[in-house]
């Protein structure tokens, strides 16, 4: 439960309220994370917040953070060289290795692109191990598209389909406008042989998962990443309890077969 000290190696301002920090260990490091897991990041003197991994490269961990409260605002304000506490990694990850030979469909919404970014980079690194692949991305508007440079680079590759849609746009935007679920029908995958990874706002994930199942992707092959109010990250405090599950420990990545009944539980 004691955080390791990490130094901000680089800081990139992605959006007005969103930054990506690359963190390198100073005094020992966390265990090697799996993609899809999260770390608890400490802003000293303020508090800690659960943040998904947006990248893992040797001992450097990358996190994309949106400033929405005291802790995340402090993390976003960190500069190169500043120190941040890191404990983790926690939770379940994306099982990409178990999908070898299958078509891969990644569906992301808004900041949900950050946790699935390692899927895409790993997919590129081992492209021959998988069938057809597509990334479907939804955002509020063109100005709030995360990792725009990377999206354009991914799109220029011929071995993965990248489709982007936004909720509204000015006339200068030549791309798609509409909800991300509408892209699912067009995805160039064989539904019965597809593993899908979905990450974004919960309502979006629910509709996407249902659209994927309607398309013929088995519910056990649709994976979503749940988000709840995680505090301890080890299943003790109960803040993230959903039914009999703790999202921090049993999730955040769950198959739709597991997640759907949990999401039917009405929270108070």
């Amino acid at each position: 439960m004691v955080p390791h000290m990490y130094r901000v190696l680089s800081r990139r301002q992605d959006l007005a309220d969103t930054v990506t920090l690359a963190l390198a260990p100073i005094d020992g490091q966390i265990a090697t994370p799996s993609i899809g897991q999260f770390n608890m990041l400490w802003a000293f003197g303020i508090g800690e917040a659960p943040i998904s991994l947006a990248g893992v490269d040797d001992d450097v961990v990358t996190h994309t953070i949106r400033g929405v409260g005291a802790v995340t605002n402090a993390l976003c304000a960190a500069s190169e060289g500043d120190q941040i506490g890191v404990r983790g990694p926690y939770g379940t990850g994306w099982d990409l290795d178990g999908a070898m030979g299958r078509d891969i469909l990644v569906v992301a919404g808004g900041l949900g692109l950050a946790p699935v970014r390692p899927i895409v980079t790993r997919l590129f690194a081992r492209r021959a191990d998988y069938g057809r692949a597509a990334l479907l991305m939804g955002a509020r508007d063109p100005e709030s598209l995360l990792y725009r440079d990377e999206l354009e680079a991914w799109r220029s590759r011929l071995d993965i389909e990248v489709e982007v849609t936004v909720d509204s746009a000015q006339r200068s935007w030549r791309g798609d406008v509409g909800v991300v679920t509408r892209l699912i029908d067009r995805a160039p995958v064989e539904a019965a042989n597809t593993r899908a990874f979905v990450c974004g706002p919960e309502v979006m994930m629910r509709f996407c998962a249902q659209a994927l199942v309607d398309l013929g992707v088995p519910p056990a092959e649709v994976f979503v990443s749940l988000e709840r109010n995680m505090h301890c990250a080890v299943g003790h405090c109960g803040h993230c309890q959903l039914g009999s599950s703790f999202v921090c420990k049993d999730g955040p990545v769950l198959s739709w077969a597991e997640a759907e009944p949990l999401l039917r539980i009405r929270e108070r």
Binding site: G109, G110, L111, G138, A139, R140, T181, F207, E227
Partner: peptide, 16 residues
């Protein structure tokens, strides 16, 4: 259905 989802402004800063 699409319009209702768009109206929710799912990706806005207030959304979880």
């Amino acid at each position: 259905q699409s319009t209702r989802l768009q109206l929710l402004d799912l990706y806005g800063t207030h959304a979880s």
